[in-house]
């Protein structure tokens, strides 16, 4: 895997940073000449993961969110979104469609489902009190 570009981003878990984070990542991948749909897919998936870190990982506290993004020579995008928040007890259960632990906040329980259908691969590493790392991968094809 030949990495041709790489970036690291660290920001506080403030909800205004959701828009900031997804636009930084979508700008970063532009050199791969993605289609509008590919950009929208990545923007949405990043927004889901970052929002989860803010809403669930850090709840009402504030903490740091880290994004590491890479692009490879064969036009693959790899984005890692990490928090040091409360973590997830049962990752498999959390990833089920419609599963949410915050119903009273009008959450649909669709964040992971969206990430999985908009990206080629979604990996989640998490443990209670250790935080959560979500790795998103997508092959950019650029067919218009």
């Amino acid at each position: 895997m030949n990495i041709i570009n790489e970036m690291h981003l660290k920001f506080i878990s403030k909800s205004t940073n959701e828009g900031f984070a997804r636009s930084v990542v979508s700008t970063f991948i532009l050199e791969l000449d993605p289609t509008i749909n590919e950009i929208a897919d990545i923007k949405t998936a990043v927004s889901e993961a970052v929002t989860n870190s803010i809403v669930h990982g850090y709840k009402r506290e504030s903490g740091m969110i880290y994004i590491d993004a890479k692009i490879t020579q064969n036009k693959k995008v790899i984005i890692k979104i990490r928090d040091k928040g409360v973590g997830i007890e049962n990752v498999e259960k959390a990833m089920e469609p419609l599963f949410t632990t915050s119903q009273q906040e009008e959450r649909a329980g669709l964040g992971f489902t969206v990430m999985q259908s908009f990206m080629d691969n979604v990996k989640v590493k998490s443990a209670p009190n250790k935080g959560t790392t979500v790795t998103l991968e997508k092959q950019i094809i650029s067919v218009r």
């Binding site: 949405t44 889901e48 969206v114």
Partner: peptide, 13 residues
């Protein structure tokens, strides 16, 4: 121009 699952929550609500 953009909507994520929070928008689905908004519609459902």
């Amino acid at each position: 121009g953009f909507m994520d699952s929070s928008g689905i929550g908004l519609i459902m609500g």
